[in-house]
């Protein structure tokens, strides 16, 4: 554990709390892509099956349980509790385009051709692109509630902080994980446009609006 990873994990935690807070405070899941949230739930379930057979640490155990439970809770909030506030007609990104390539890439580029390793690899690839439906929705509506942008920023910062974490681990432990690093670079890259608007406008008190 190093400072970059700890801060990254805390940003990830924060993003989930912000999202739940947004839904409960506005009593609405407007502006949130159900598809992206469903993909995250799938990411956590496929990655954390190792909870069943591989003990790492209490920190690791608790965090994994939290991420799985909270992602399912968010799906519940969107699908049942605040269902009328969710508009599927603007959440139209085809997730087949993300699931298919992630699955086939995980069959080809993995560390070991075993069920659990392929599930882990699939979850890494899928996570890197799972934000697409959300960003697509943002692009379509052209604006977002400020609290939603805080959620997205925390989520982006989480993976961005994993990059210095990997550099640090390479230097101190000689550890290199090409799959995680490649996917992490892609994932962080997807946020660059968003970060630009967030840091130049939202943090200066302006509304998140994309140029027409």
């Amino acid at each position: 554990m190093n400072i970059f990873r700890l801060l990254g994990d805390l940003a990830h935690l924060a993003s989930i709390f912000v999202l739940i807070h947004k839904i409960q405070k506005t009593r609405s899941c407007r502006g949130i892509s159900f598809k992206t949230q469903a993909l995250y739930a799938l990411v956590f379930v496929t990655r954390y099956v190792d909870l069943l057979y591989h003990w790492i640490s209490l920190y690791n155990f608790v965090m994994k349980l939290f991420f799985m439970a909270s992602s399912c809770y968010i799906l519940y909030l969107m699908k049942f509790r605040y269902r009328p506030t969710h508009d599927p007609s603007i959440d139209t990104f085809k997730i087949e385009y993300l699931l298919g390539p992630s699955f086939f890439l995980s069959l080809i580029f993995n560390y070991e051709f075993s069920l659990t390793e392929i599930m882990w690899t699939f979850s890494i690839y899928l996570e890197s692109v799972a934000i697409f439906p959300q960003l697509f929705m943002l692009q379509r509506t052209g604006e977002a509630e400020t609290i939603t942008t805080h959620y997205l920023a925390a989520l982006g910062i989480y993976r961005a902080l994993y990059l210095p974490n990997w550099i640090y681990r390479y230097i101190t432990q000689d550890m290199v994980d090409p799959i995680a690093i490649t996917a992490g670079l892609v994932q962080t890259g997807l946020y660059l446009d968003f970060f630009y608007v967030y840091f130049t406008k939202v943090l200066h008190g302006q509304k998140f609006e994309l140029p027409a």
């Binding site: 990873r5 994994k64 070991e112 390793e117 550890m175 995680a180």
Partner: peptide, 10 residues
């Protein structure tokens, strides 16, 4: 050898 150390990450 798989870099399994990374599997300790979230």
């Amino acid at each position: 050898e798989a870099p399994r150390e990374s599997h300790d990450e979230l």
